[in-house]
Each structure stands twice: as C-alpha cells, then as structure tokens.
Nucleic acid binder design. Sequence first.
DNA 1: AAATATTAAAACATCTGATGTTTTAATGTT
DNA 2: AACATTAAAACATCAGATGTTTTAATATTT
Lengths: 244, 244
Amino acid sequence: MFKTAKFNRISQNIVQQIRQAILKGDLQPGHRLPPEKELAENFGVSKASLREAFRALEALGLLEVRQGVSGGAFICEVDLETARNNIVNYIFFQNPSIREFTQLRIILEPAISRLAAVQATDEQLADIEDNLKESKMELDSGSFSYELDIDFHRRIADMTDNSLIHLVIDSMQSALVNIKKLIEPDYDFSLMVYHAHMRIFDALCSRDPEKAAGEMLRHVKEVGDGLTAFCDPKNLCASSSKKN
Amino acid sequence: MFKTAKFNRISQNIVQQIRQAILKGDLQPGHRLPPEKELAENFGVSKASLREAFRALEALGLLEVRQGVSGGAFICEVDLETARNNIVNYIFFQNPSIREFTQLRIILEPAISRLAAVQATDEQLADIEDNLKESKMELDSGSFSYELDIDFHRRIADMTDNSLIHLVIDSMQSALVNIKKLIEPDYDFSLMVYHAHMRIFDALCSRDPEKAAGEMLRHVKEVGDGLTAFCDPKNLCASSSKKN
DNA sequence: AAATATTAAAACATCTGATGTTTTAATGTT
DNA sequence: AACATTAAAACATCAGATGTTTTAATATTT
C-alpha cells in the first residue's frame, strides 16, 4: 500500500530538504549556506553527515562547495553538462539500438530544421559556417572528431531558441557518440556526413524550411543506415573486438 | 588554454574512477564493491572520503549502499526516476515557457501517436482504456490528478517500444506538471483534456495513424492555448486564440 | 519436520575532534 | 601604485570510537 521509505539516512534527509527549498524558490542560485560547523548545528547533525549531503548535492549540480576564506557552499543552477551526463548514464544502461536513435531523430531533427530555417539569425548561420570550415579542415587532415558533428546539430537546435529542444538534441547526440566510438566510422562515412551538413546549411541559408527538413531527414536516415551497415555484416550484438 | 581542473577532491576522484569503470563495463549492475574499510585501504583514503564518494554515486543512481550483514555497496543501473529528477532539476532553472513546451510537444507527440497507432498491442490499448476509466472516475468525483494525465502520454510513448522516446516524453510531462501545479487548471480544462484523450484513444483503436496524429496535435495545441490563457489574466474572459 | 524465536556478526551510520590545505582579504613594503 | 606577506576563514582529510541495521546461523518449540 505504501512505498517503503527507503532512505533514513541523515545525509539523504538533508539533501531532500535543500532540494525542496531550491524548488520552492527559498534558496536561489548564488546563495551561500552557513559554514559547515554552523549548518551542522542547525540541522543537529555531525559535520561528516552534512558533508555527505553536500557531496550528493554537488553530484546533482545543485551545489558548489569552495574552499578558502570567502568560500563555502553555494547554491547553483544545474548546468547542461550535469544534466547531459545524467541522461547519458541512464541511456548507457538502456543500451538503445541505432534504430531507436534514428527513429527519434527522424521525428525531431527535420522538424527542428524546419523551424531553424525560419528563425535563424545571420550570426547563427555564420557559426554553422565556421563549424563546417573546421570540419573540412579536419576531414582534409584525415581525422573527424565527433565534437564538431555534435556541435553542428546542437547549433541548429539552438536556432529554435528553445531550451528543451536544446537539451534533448544535445543529450541524444552525446549518447549517440558512445555508439559511434564503438563503430569507428571510416573516412567515406565522415565525408558523407560533411556533404549532408553542407546541403543542410545551404537550405538554411536560403531560408527554405521544407528543403532544410528534407535534407535533414535524408541525413539522419543516411547516418542510421550507415551505422547499421557498419554493425551488421559480422557483429550481431556482443561486446567486442571485431576487427575486419 | 586548458580547463582549470576543478575538482581535486578525493571523493570526486573516486567517483570518476568508479563511473568510468562502469561505463567501460568493468563494473556491472549487481556487482558488490569490497567493504568500506577494505576499499578505503585500496584507494589509500579515509573511510570518510570514501563515504562521500558513495553518497555522490548514489545521487547519480549508479550505486546503492545497504546496511546489514549481507549489505555493502552495489553497482546499479540508473533508473528512470533518477534520470527524470535530474532532467526536471535542469529544466526548473531553464524555466521554459509554455510556448517552448508546446513547440517540442507538437513535434514529438503527434509523430509518436502515428507510430503508436501502428505498433500498439491490444494489451497496451487496454491499459490506455484503464487509464481513461480512472480519469473519468476522478473527473466525476471533481478532482483530476496530473499522474493520470502524465500516464496517458507515457503509455502512448511506450507503444513505440523506444526507450529514448519514453525518457523524453516522461521527463517533459514531469517538468510540465510543475507549470500545471502553478496554474491549477479548472474543471472545464480537465474535461477538455479527457475528451481529447478519448478521441486519441479511438484513433489508436481504429489503427488510424493520421487520425491519431491529428487528434494528438489538436490536443497539444489546445492544452498549450489553455495553459497560456490561464497564465495571462487578460485572456481569462476572451476565449479566442491569439497569434503573436 | 516445520515453524518460530534467538543470537551473533558483518557491514554500514554517525559522531567527535584533531590536523592539514586552500583561498583571499587585509596588511605591509617597495 | 605595484607587489609581497600574512593571517584567518572555511573547507578537506583522517583516525577512531560507538551505534544501528540486517540477516545468516542457531536454537527452540510445536
């Protein structure tokens, strides 16, 4: 009938109190909590227990503890990196297939490109162009980092000026990298990606929503098929050292 | 040039080592770490520092520490609740507008419904029907919980059998609840939601992807407009939709 | 033999207090 | 004004003592 109250730990209790205070708005980013000794007395707990709570709150991205004379425990906004890492941790265990990634991307990315083609500022388009130039350089030098690839998609997501869309795309791209690292796409794959990015960029520049969406859809499908092809021939699912 | 190495803390170092071991596959869910005393000696640190690391790992959902004779520190899969809470924390600070939520939902939910209409099993459809019956009862009794509303959308997301889609919908719905709690929609609003859910359910049952997508789109827009109207006092009386 | 009660030990939870380190505001010096 | 020094605030870490929880093992009862 009732959920068994799992955590009777003092530190957990403190974490919940502080998190609730933040969510209620009583504690805001930048706010400094009292010194350890004093706060421990307030809570009626030992310094050690309080410090355990601090470590948990830091892991959640809600607190930052700094040493030094004007240091202390400061409430923080949860940053994108923290949120992304937590999502990546979760997705790691779900171990979704390329098909699942592609299915979600097909839904999201063309629609986002459609919005981007309308809303993008010239400055944002210039940023994309920079990204493509860097990609070109990397490609010519024989390498291709995932960072630039992620960044391309993230910047398009940025054009929607929607923090939710930004978070979702950023997290999915980051999680997808873990798959790409296993697969280690070759030069031809990277070249294909580059060309697709170029076509998408052109569509955005010409402010053509349907073309942008269409090119993005093609790109996402191509990448999905490409990655699947890399997986398919020999290796079915296992972990491993498959060397061709 | 280089990022200032932020965390020199012993506990943070341990957290990173253990997280990496998990992500590399060296530590798997269910694995029990050595007892505190022994592990502290392995790491060459004090028990207190090790315990701080444990608290952080627990906050991340990667570890569970249990007391008792066959207790200890066990590696866990990150569960949905942990991931969702972290996402909700992040979104809390981003404080996205109803417009942003609606924009993302318009992209996602109709497309998901389209897939669901094709893929749903009869059992899954029956689950939705249960959800609607419960909603009806709540409605008749004058209340309307957000849980059932979230659950309706989550179950449709489930029909895609895609863990990424499930995570995104689940998290967005949970974050959206925080807005709804502020707004406290009235009975008419809840009734409108119920009717929309019924129409979507019918479309799913008749295995009509386009109808399902269409009804879902209408629903998401309706809710977006409704919530916006509740936010803006000027719009409380006028029921016309405003375009900006 | 099965069910129930008891016990003991493993492992974590918490507290206390001592000592070390980092950071910076305040102060002093050139 | 620029630079160097210092002192104190606040956290970081450690060691050890004591308490609590949980359950496997044992004993007892039915």
